[in-house]
Design a protein around this nucleic acid. Structure first.
Lengths: 111, 111
DNA sequence: CCAATCAATTAGTATTTGCTAATGCATTAG
DNA sequence: CTAATGCATTAGCAAATACTAATTGATTGG
């Protein structure tokens, strides 16, 4: 009961604040699905560390997993970024700063 | 030279990951300008702590200061959020998720 | 002038964090 | 069956973090 659960924004921010963990998220995002072993390769840290980071990311709602045999495949859950989007939205930076891009984007998607 | 300066995204994320510090930023943002004493009031932490948080925020480019007499007034620098915007942009969450809003927004501004 | 106010900095401390190394538990290959 | 592989979890540790209390240096009100 002493554990006050931090709000989603804090959880997401904290999850992404660490460079190593953020790099893990990025790699997961880039690949449709990726195993822990694969993530460990070239990460510079041990498999245990990767598992810990994945746990944080999962708790933050940023990744999801699928177990298959002895492998566990992770994929990104971009919806997990929603708290961050909402927070920033509240501070109104997006639309104002990037306005010229909007038209192009719209044209591109629905010409 | 041993100090590897973390990239801007990390700096900004870290600055905003702490709830107290994020609350400070939010209050600074909401008021056009606000003094340290005022920020300390109702913050739940000491003036020293507030000063420390402001220092982090300043280093992250999220706030700027103006000294006047014995007061120092802080204001938000929303441009400091740019690294965050860029990072998220790269993951494409904004436009895709909020797509229906785009049309409305465009119409609203340039009917 | 001088007491009070404002803000930054510093030393010290408790907690949190990111990591490794080691273990354990499944699962699969041969 | 047995060895090897994949992954999670744990204990332990060093470093980072968020805080307080105290100090210092300005500035200003009376």
């Amino acid at each position: 009961m002493t554990e006050a659960a931090p709000n989603p924004i804090t959880t997401v921010m904290r999850a992404l604040a660490d460079p190593t963990r953020r790099a893990v998220f990025e790699r997961v995002f880039e690949s449709k699905e990726i195993s822990v072993a694969e993530l460990t390769r070239g990460s510079g840290v041990t498999q245990g560390a990767i598992s810990q980071h994945l746990k944080s990311l999962k708790q933050a709602g940023l990744v999801a997993e699928r177990a298959e045999g002895r492998n566990v495949y992770y994929r990104a859950s971009p919806e997990g970024l929603e708290p961050l989007v909402t927070w920033m939205d509240h501070y109104g930076v997006f639309w104002r700063e990037r306005f010229q891009n909007l038209r192009d984007l719209l044209k591109e998607i629905d010409p």
